[in-house]
Design a binder for these strands. Structure first.
Lengths: 346, 346
DNA sequence: CGGCACAAGGTTAGCGCTAACAAGGAAGGC
DNA sequence: GCCTTCCTTGTTAGCGCTAACCTTGTGCCG
């Protein structure tokens, strides 16, 4: 146990301490709070650390201090627009010597529950969740654990006490519709993801309907389609179904850039020109939106800022997690805003 | 400490044991090795677990058993084609009740080293690395720790003792060139990633050169270009530079589907038709390859199989990690093969 | 020059679990 | 009927680290 496969036990702090001629506690302090150790001692310890190649056992450290220095994020998919969010979260956390661990829920509340259970069992110091679709058990576990928590991509305040960082997606979708109308489009369709368990999809559909209502246009359910999955193929298939029912559409508001790219590809495949025959607008400002031809009109959802702010909010809570005043700290809702980016596709 | 922010201490096994009227050890056994506990006792313990909502402390468990049930993977980027590999790895590991944690190195050996150090400090039970570009310190740490290790996407045997799972990428790239030649293309260019620290990029460039050599064609360095980063924009910019020097090219062999998509977009932007004016072939069979229009000819690198096999190899090692015979187990090289997928772009 | 503050390091006692062994009891063989 | 064997549960002793407290030594003040 605690040994390398060939039977040699792993180095412990005691080995370093003996070599440096100090106590174990001094080595611990040299690693965690260097200023608390005299310069000459620090030098001896560092030499011993160097010589042995000692790697601290963070499992033991975590048990003794009841802080694991790990923060978990549960995302629906490993893809745009979540990847940039994670990247910036990870950067902020690393700078504070926390590590980010990841779980993928595939938009399934039960998988999210299993992930949250696993993370809580590992006693992570904080959890970032994507808004919407939590099971009652998930919420109960989180409340009982009392772990710092932040929700991302919420469109409005959530059910339980938690910090949130978000953008007003619904208004964003409405702005897309306004833009398409301003471009002279009249027959605007919508392609979104499943609204089941997906609060983001719900908000975007809502904004589309708001936009139509504002212009006094009727809501035609047959001009709306749900993609079966968040891949380009899903967008392409959705457009095919949509055009079968409503071939005269001149614009499509799509709830994600990935789907929108699929929509553009399918339009080209059918010999339609984008934007001449069909204007297409996406959502998220994913990488493909600016790279593809024609480049996609989209909404920048501040994915990176979202990750950065989420991490900062978690750190603010963990830093006082040992104090009773964490509960006293009110839940916060941080709104990041958004930007409509007009490109070639409209 | 070990308490919720409001001061209530977290549940321990002892609390469950008291409620069930058994010893702590029996609760532990009920959780880890249910068959070792009598059915009637198991029922009592499970009732108590249910009633309390107890979540085992895997930090303490990890310290006591010196097995964390965590496996780490270090990838160069969160993107295709790594995402499917991770997904299948994660699935296999979860089934064996291991958890996968992720690190992103950005093709930087120093970042990889830092990640490996962090993972070893957390005493992960296994590590999966992407082949190539390890610092000597990284290798030294891994050897000293003696943790089960697997390399993915290696093209050939590696420097140190380790399992590997790979595909013959070099031959794959050669096959792409053969295919382009068979389609009547004569002036074939190459766009790859930086070969610095990127063993995959090196292998693919090598295969391209092999293909030219085999056909008796000269190697024109000016027909080769390096993308500055693995994004579509990188591919687009690389094509622009390439065509400036060699406008007469009629085919491009691209080292990744993401780059290849950028190449196609740039070609369209310049009014070139793909494949009529320019044939484009990618690598990896990423999602965009089959979704985009025109769909990309590419090489299926068995990304999912790679993750699955890597996870299986790690599990085979961890299961005997407590025994001395792990070292006795020889290093293995598992070759998965590849498939050329011909689509519209050539 | 005694007393006191503070800096620097050591000592003690766990963190919450599990490995390893011990013990008790039921079942089975002779 | 007694001894062996196995099945089930309990007891003991840590895993490697850190929080909290305690000790020592140094400098500074009146």
């Amino acid at each position: 146990m605690a040994s390398k496969p060939n039977g040699v036990p792993a180095l412990r702090m005691e080995d370093v301490a003996r070599l440096a001629g100090v106590s174990v506690m001094t080595v611990s302090r040299a690693l965690r709070t260097p200023p608390a150790v005299a310069a000459s001692t620090l030098a001896k310890v560092r030499a011993a650390l160097e010589e042995t190649g000692y790697l601290p056992n963070l499992v033991a450290s975590g048990l003794a201090s009841s802080r694991t220095q790990v923060v978990a994020a549960v995302i629906p998919l490993i893809s745009q627009p979540f990847a940039p969010t994670l990247q910036s979260m990870s950067d902020v956390l690393r700078r504070a010597s926390y590590q980010l661990v990841l779980g993928v829920s595939h938009y399934d509340p039960l998988q999210e529950e299993a992930l949250v259970r696993a993370f809580l069992s590992r006693r992570v110091d904080g959890i970032a969740l994507f808004a919407g679709g939590h099971t009652p058990q998930t919420i109960a576990m989180l409340e009982q654990a009392g772990v710092p928590l932040v929700e991302m991509w919420a469109d409005s305040a959530t059910e339980f006490i938690v910090d949130a960082v978000s953008v007003p997606q619904r208004r964003g979708a409405q702005d897309v519709v306004r833009h398409l109308l301003a471009r002279g489009r009249q027959r605007i369709g919508f392609i979104g993801g499943s609204t089941r368990h997906n609060i983001r999809a719900q908000a975007r559909l809502g904004g589309y309907l708001d936009g139509l209502a504002e212009a006094g246009l009727p809501h035609d359910p047959a001009a709306c389609e749900e993609a079966t999955h968040f891949l380009m193929e899903g967008g392409a298939a959705a457009l095919a179904r949509l055009l079968e029912r409503r071939p005269q559409l001149d614009a499509i508001c799509v709830a994600s850039d990935i789907l929108a790219a699929g929509v553009v590809f399918e339009a080209h495949r059918r010999g339609l020109s984008v934007p001449r025959d069909l204007a297409v607008a996406g959502f998220d400002d994913a990488e493909i939106a600016r790279s593809m031809y024609p480049a996609l009109t989209t909404i920048d959802m501040r994915a990176e800022d979202m990750g950065r702010r989420a991490a900062e909010m978690l750190l603010e809570r963990t830093s006082q997690s040992s104090r009773v005043d964490l509960v006293a700290m009110p839940s916060r809702m941080h709104d990041l805003g958004y930007t409509l980016i007009v490109r070639e596709s409209t």
